[in-house]
Write a protein that binds this DNA or RNA. Structure first.
Lengths: 362, 362
DNA sequence: CGCAGGCTGGCAAGCGGTTGCCAAATGTTG
DNA sequence: CAACATTTGGCAACCGCTTGCCAGCCTGCG
């Protein structure tokens, strides 16, 4: 039993107690096979008795490897990151790595600063939706292995959601429901994902002979979605795809407040499948990003890099998205081509039996 | 300009370039005043030119202080922790500390393991809703300063929500609405908060001449709340207080599915005021824990401890909770004493104008 | 029997800072 | 101007662990 009185024991204490040199103790732990099996076992026993644990800091100094990775998130309070964090943690822990979580608080400056302090502490970095410029990221990337999430930066390996395919599924879904014009409610212009999604939407509507219109940009939040309401009223459509779930939720609330019914009057599709998506009313139809898998993949690839693997030069690693159909989308009502929200008295939607989930969301 | 070619420069490089001894460089950074102002300035300039940054690892070895703290969370995906994390991060960053976020994934074993690896890396630890036993926590606490959140452990300083007062407000609110019997939907038995809340509820109903009944325990999740439905149907009441928001949301969904209307037939109050609480329909009336402040306070107190402050022996630091009144609570309908859920056809609730927030939630 | 080669374990030089102690330089005082 | 107090900067010994290099020992083989 370890008594927690004094300082924790070092390899020297173990070495003395076991009657060997400190280097042998070190090797017994760090270099299996380099030391005689019996000796190693004896050392192991003595170490256990003394309650010895190798000090990661001291180990890191000569080796230069800390077994820590940094995960930088632009905003921890955004539920979008929850599963990413968890996936990343899982992959890191599994590989014996500790995760240094940093919240950039939506500020490129804070992100830089935090990174500056962390960079010498970690073996690699995952940047989830960084707010920094491409060049700043490349700067970091030449000091330590870096993986960016949901973004493409030249010369820096990345992991992204397959937005085009996900968007395609969403458009097909709306098309099957009879919608002909789709409004895209745009997120931040600086967002790589936003550009990709809009582009994919245009291609999809073109192929399927539908029409798309874009409004925005807005903040990628509930408030931002609500703000889109005004513009939407000017270009009424029966179907909307929002940049992300938060905005979709905000928009639905605004629509409802204005007297429109979702999905009867307007179908709304979100992106990301965040936790709250299935909690809101109506439950949100959304394109589910493989959040957990993304976090996991990012970390795994990062660790591969730290072990000296060459980054794949085939562009970003793309993970499949799935459409989760819930209750915010429905058939377009033919007799209601040009919705006049708010003019008809709302009679209330009966409890929907639905919430059919087309694809498992996690 | 720092060229990112070679290894990062050390104090020796700076010392040589500035024509001083390495110790002087060290002191110029770590011991202001110990070195002549001019010399220090010159060193500073040279260091900047070389792109020198002090290596936290190397510094930690001799000093024993890493400027890192560990924040252990029982489940990062639980939105309850979002603001706590952020508050903690903010306080840590402000003090120049880096946060090591660890997700215990609801497992006491994983928590221990993670802690074991982290303990030698950090100057202090915040345990948010730990799954470990009191004695295990005390064990950790004698190796490093520890602050526990939302729990009382003898001899270990803690920060908690003022549950009794919050519960009292909730009961008063329901009482004012005419409810006479309140059902408490319990969370995990092992939860310290659960016990505190139930006790507070009993006291409050006693003082106000109301009645309380307890069902459970259930999992503190949406599914757990839904599971409570069955038991609730057996003891119908017009008012329910759930252990937390997630359960309240689950319960509301189950009630709605069963044909009961919230809040017309049943008023529901949650705890925590998580992000989704205002997004669901009806928006949830809930007791808002000062999440951000808790994270912040925990870290500040922890850092005070690492600086050698004696822990306050006055028991846990208690932070005030506030009641946020939204749309899930309403006047009890006198003619509906014994609700027969599901027998009457639901006609649908008109869009509520409400969502009145009695107290700012953040 | 002599020797090359594989195992083992020890020695000691770092890794990049910190800091107690000392001495030179400078400032103060009587 | 001598004696003494203060600054200021350098020396060198760590902090705890890793690892290149070396030597002793044991085997196996010609």
């Amino acid at each position: 039993m370890a008594d927690a009185g004094a300082k924790s024991p070092t390899i020297y204490d173990v070495a003395r107690a076991a009657g060997v040199a400190s280097s042998t103790v070190s090797r017994a732990f760090a270099r299996p096979g380099r030391v005689n099996a019996e000796t190693a076992e004896r050392i192991r026993v003595v170490a256990a008795e003394l309650g010895y644990r190798t000090n990661p800091l001291a180990r890191a100094l000569p080796t230069g490897r800390t077994s820590m990775i940094s995960l930088v998130i632009s905003d921890v309070t955004n539920p979008f990151y929850n599963e990413i964090i968890r996936g990343a943690q899982a992959a890191a822990t599994e590989a014996g790595y500790t995760t240094l979580l940093t919240d950039a608080q939506e500020s490129g400056a804070k992100e830089r600063e935090a990174l500056e302090r962390a960079v010498s502490l970690v073996d690699g970095i995952v940047l989830a939706t960084s707010r920094m410029s491409d060049s700043a990221i490349r700067m970091i990337a030449k000091q330590r292995p870096v993986i960016v999430l949901n973004r493409a930066v030249a010369d820096v390996p990345s992991v992204v959601t397959d937005n085009p395919r996900g968007m395609r599924r969403a458009v097909e879904h709306l098309g099957e429901l009879g919608h002909e014009r789709i409004t895209y409610v745009a997120g931040p212009e600086a967002s790589w994902a936003d550009g990709t999604r809009w582009r994919a939407l245009r291609e999809a509507v073109h192929d399927l002979d539908l029409h798309a219109h874009r409004i925005g940009p807005y903040e990628p939040t509930v408030a931002g979605g609500a703000a889109a309401m005004a513009d939407l009223a000017r270009h009424p459509t029966s179907a909307v795809i929002a940049y992300n779930d938060l905005m979709a939720i905000g928009l639905i609330r605004a629509l409802t407040a204005a007297g429109a019914r979702v999905p009867e009057d307007v179908s709304v599709v979100g992106f990301d499948n965040i936790f709250a998506a299935e909690l809101v009313t109506p439950a949100l139809t959304t394109v589910a990003a493989p959040l957990h898998a993304m976090g996991q993949t990012a970390v795994r690839n990062l660790l591969a890099l730290t072990r000296g693997a060459r980054p794949t030069s085939h562009g970003p690693v793309s993970l499949p998205a799935q459409l989760v159909v819930r209750a915010s989308t429905a058939h377009r009502r033919r007799n209601n081509t040009s919705p006049a929200w708010g003019t008809t008295k709302v009679s209330g939607a009966p409890a929907r039996a639905s919430t059919s989930t087309a694809a498992g969301s996690r």
